[in-house]
Amino acid sequence: MSKVLVVSDSHGLTNELEVLRARHLNEVDLMIHCGDSEMMPDDNVMNGYLTVKGNCDFGSYPLETTTEIAGRKFFVTHGHRYSVKSSLMNLKYKAAEVGADIVCFGHSHVLGAEVIGGTLFLNPGSIRMPRERLEKTYVILDLLDETIKMSVYDISGRELKELAFEFELPKK
Rank of each mutant, 00 (worst) to 15 (best):
D101N: 11
D101I: 02
I102W: 07
I102E: 05
I102H: 07
I102A: 08
I102Q: 05
C104A: 15
C104V: 10
G106M: 12
G106T: 08
H107T: 14
H107L: 14
S108W: 13
S108K: 11
S108C: 15
H109P: 07
H109N: 14
V110C: 14
V110R: 13
V110E: 13
L111A: 05
L111G: 01
G112C: 07
G112Y: 04
G112K: 06
G112E: 10
A113E: 04
A113T: 03
E114T: 05
V115K: 07
V115G: 04
V115W: 05
V115R: 05
I116Q: 01
G118H: 09
G118N: 09
T119S: 07
T119H: 03
T119Q: 02
L120W: 01
L120K: 00
L120P: 00
F121I: 04
L122Y: 02
L122M: 06
N123Y: 08
N123T: 11
N123A: 10
N123C: 12
P124L: 04
P124R: 02
G125T: 03
G125S: 06
G125L: 05
G125H: 01
S126I: 10
S126Q: 10
S126L: 10
I127L: 02
I127V: 09
I127W: 00
I127Q: 00
I127R: 00
R128D: 13
R128A: 14
M129K: 11
M129S: 10
P130G: 10
P130T: 12
P130R: 09
P130D: 12
R131Q: 15
R131V: 11
E132G: 04
E132N: 15
E132W: 12
E132P: 03
E132R: 15
E132F: 15
R133E: 08
R133P: 01
L134W: 15
L134C: 08
L134D: 14
E135R: 09
E135L: 09
E135P: 06
E135C: 09
E135T: 08
T137K: 05
T137Y: 08
T137L: 09
T137V: 11
Y138P: 00
Y138A: 01
Y138I: 01
V139P: 06
